[in-house]
Design a protein around this nucleic acid. Structure first.
Lengths: 234, 234
DNA sequence: CGCCTCCTATTTGTATGACAAATTCCATGC
DNA sequence: GCATGGAATTTGTCATACAAATAGGAGGCG
């Protein structure tokens, strides 16, 4: 029996709790945290566990510790904004449209470029994976199957760029967006509307036409954007 | 007297050392590290310090610890590729052109989009900062002053997007590229060649013309790319 | 022989207490 | 007023002990 990610270790809980407090602003920037000993007692953990958590938060750029001075919350400009945890904490504490806009903007930035890069550099094997995802979308009977295949399609394209920086950025942004929306379009009836557009992108990547792929993908994400908006505003 | 970042704390050294070993591949993926007790002794630190380092590496996605099983190096796909440390370790261990290409690709992806976004959303204050940087470039007497002002220009544009995800991505990529090249063009003689192009971008942002700004920035980074290449190949 | 159950050995996770190191801040002397 | 030399405080490191999880084997049972 597989145990699904439940409550993890103690220091992990501390990371989450403090991280949330900081990103949400409940711990003001520049403010000093209590002494380790005090904070540990207040959170009902040992100083050891607390420190392990603090080191991680420090690595994420959220806090900074110095002897005698203590530990204080760093300015926002030092935070690792692209860290998955930091991003997740922001999503929790910033339910505003403004932040969603930023995420969407990033997505619209990545994907067309990725399609173009994929058209240039995809291997035959990677093309096959894209095709497989496309065929799965075509064959999808219900919305869930389609959504899964859709995500696979985008992931396959991203991997085909052979640029792990790009695909890593994609997965970070995508999972953050996922906290706001259940994947892709939910206006159920004819969910296969986007299929022709996917085919265009696939064809462009197959024929190694970077610009065509870019334009096609640009249109695709633009469409998906308006879907998101419709879903959200009602 | 300000002390510049020297050798930091012990656990920090451990982070660096293990991180390098992993990213460079000297510790093979999937391989188990020695037991904490053994590893600690081998590195001449206490188990406490070692563990603080391991938690950080774990947060960066490089390793994974489980009781009884031990700690092993995770697959590359789980690494936080956009983490500043991970990127820096890659730069050290991958002197190949291939990785530089990926970084440059990311840069060419970000900056035009940033210029467009800045044209849409810059505040008067942010525009003033861009202008100030431009004027500093114009006034630069030597190459160093120009390089500093140039970086300030790009940073100001990035900040003017009002999208901290984008500016964070920029700074990460830029600092990674900085490990390969001393900022910008080094073909000294007439380093102000790029000035008109900067002016075009500035004007487009001032006049709120996103597409013009995008095109202008696209050309600018393309030029700077060929500069980089020339500098590198000789 | 095959399968299930339980136990034990091993490894990370947490707790505690003590001391080292850095550095702010004050007192002291000149 | 200013240097200078301590404390006092806070994080950094160490050593040790025990808790918790769990892989892997021993043993029982059909």
């Amino acid at each position: 029996m597989v145990k699904l990610a439940t409550v993890r270790n103690l220091h992990h809980q501390v990371i989450q709790e403090l991280g949330r407090l900081i990103v949400s602003g409940e711990l003001a920037i520049g403010q000093n945290l209590p002494r380790e000993e005090v904070l540990a007692e207040r959170m009902n953990v040992s100083r050891t566990a607390l420190r392990e958590a603090m080191k991680v938060l420090s690595a994420k750029g959220l806090i900074e510790s110095r002897q005698k001075t203590g530990t204080r919350v760093r300015e926002e400009m030092y935070w690792n904004q692209l860290d998955a945890d930091v991003l997740a904490w922001r999503c929790e504490s910033m339910p505003t449209d403004a932040f969603v806009e930023k995420l969407v903007e990033m997505r619209e930035l990545i994907e067309p470029a990725a399609a173009a890069a994929a058209a240039k550099r995809r291997t035959p094997d990677q093309l096959a994976q894209i095709e497989a995802a496309y065929l799965a979308m075509e064959a999808a009977e219900d919305l869930d199957a389609w959504a899964i295949a859709d995500l696979a399609f985008h992931e396959a394209v991203l991997r085909a760029t052979n640029n792990e920086l790009m695909s890593s950025l994609f997965s970070v942004i995508e999972s953050a967006l996922g906290t706001y929306f259940v994947l892709s379009a939910r206006n159920s009836a004819n969910f296969k509307n986007a299929l022709p557009q996917h085919h265009k992108v696939y064809e462009a990547i197959r024929r190694r036409q970077p610009e065509v792929a870019r334009q096609g993908m640009m249109k695709m994400v633009a469409d998906s954007r308006s879907n998101l908006r419709r879903q959200r505003t009602r």
